[in-house]
Amino acid sequence: MTGLPATPPQRKLGLVIDLDTCVGCHACAVNCKEWNAGGYHAPLTDIDPYGVEPDGVWFNRIHSFEVGTGPDTRVVNFPKSCLHCDNAPCVTVCPTGASYKRVEDGIVLVEEDKCIGCKLCSWACPYGAREFDGDAGVMKKCTLCIDRIYNDNLEEVDRVPACVATCPASARHFGDFADPNSNVSKLAAERGGFDLMPEMDCQPVNKYLPPRPKKTGGDTDRVPELQDASPEGGFLGWVDRLLSSTEHV
């Protein structure tokens, strides 16, 4: 009954986040907040919401980074929520067992009624995916929308996490990584999905897709520079050639 599942979960549900298309719009973060405010971890308390230092519980936060230096510097938008690690330290440090990883699908959850609010799991998580609700005195976190993905009251198509359903840029994908043929497994394989901070040995389930290489220099080779068209025909002589070559009359 303690620690991580003895056998690997039957399914490994998680997200693929595409850093190549994420425009940093925060849609996923706010829809997550909205869904979960009334969901499994209700409420997602906001302290001082109209005051000087508003501080709310969010399961998904969107960073933006500058990468590189000089004229090639790029901006990468970077959403981050719980990665539902296979080797989740947040689970093993938890003294009460409130924090656990589900055997069925690998989702890492907190059971609030058992949580003493010692915060140790948040110290153990390298990714900052644990959210302490100072008002309720308990730890909360991304549930992978467990109350959506299995929800009989939702239509089949809607049984995906809120953040995935809402992302206007389709930068988020949900599926089962245990199945090599799932959309997420294939995406991760094709696009070089990677782990955050592998040195922490958490074995995150969620994968990030790297920004694609930029199509800047390469095209110069493919497309030769434009050549002067006038020499033979004089000023705009090429126009007549163009016109005679189109069978418009």
Binding site: G38, A42, G51
Partner: peptide
């Protein structure tokens, strides 16, 4: 409100 517990 100083604490917002929407959805509680």
């Amino acid at each position: 409100p100083s604490v917002l517990r929407y959805g509680a």
